[in-house]
């Protein structure tokens, strides 16, 4: 039998990890998408100038 207080602490830590890592991953997907879009835009502008 694990003490309730300890048990809750570890449970919260576990779910915090799950939510944080998932959020960070989704954020990184967003960021990379935005950066690529910007790159694409720049490249297209350069091509137009040529």
């Amino acid at each position: 039998m694990i003490e309730y207080a300890t048990s809750i602490k570890y449970m919260l830590a576990g779910y915090a990890v799950i939510l944080t890592v998932l959020a960070l991953y989704i954020l990184s997907l967003f960021n990379r998408w935005r950066n690529l879009k910007r790159d694409l835009q720049t490249l297209k502008e350069i091509q137009k100038k040529d």
Binding site: M1, I2, Y4, S7, I8, Y10, M11, G14
Partner: peptide, 9 residues
């Protein structure tokens, strides 16, 4: 019963 909350992980 034995692990209570942490088992929810």
């Amino acid at each position: 019963a034995t692990m209570n909350y942490v088992q929810k992980i």
